[in-house]
Amino acid sequence: MKLLINKITLLAVLLSINVVADEFTIGQKNKAFSKENISIKKGDTIHFLNEDPFFHNVFSLSDTQFFDLGSYPKGESKAVVFNEAGKVEVECAIHSEMFLTIEVKE
């Protein structure tokens, strides 16, 4: 009986690990995102951290998910939770050469 309870507990823990959302950080440094592509799953969070000594304005006009984080200076970070599966293209409104593609999986 005790063994069965242990097995059920282990299974519950494993299941909960599987559904726990992950968190990622994408930096903005030297007018570039720290990655060009990232693959995440629904419910995950990305923190956009400005590491440049000037403002960035991270946004996405993608159909999958629209957001505009506004402008923020070095050292500040803003988070976005991605709740829809699909491709999300992220840019900086100020610096037109900054691109990041996020693939949000089911």
Partner: peptide, 13 residues
């Protein structure tokens, strides 16, 4: 730039 990127910050940019 707002005509290309309709974001508040781009109004008059």
């Amino acid at each position: 730039r707002y005509a290309q990127k309709p974001l508040k910050l781009m109004k008059g940019a």
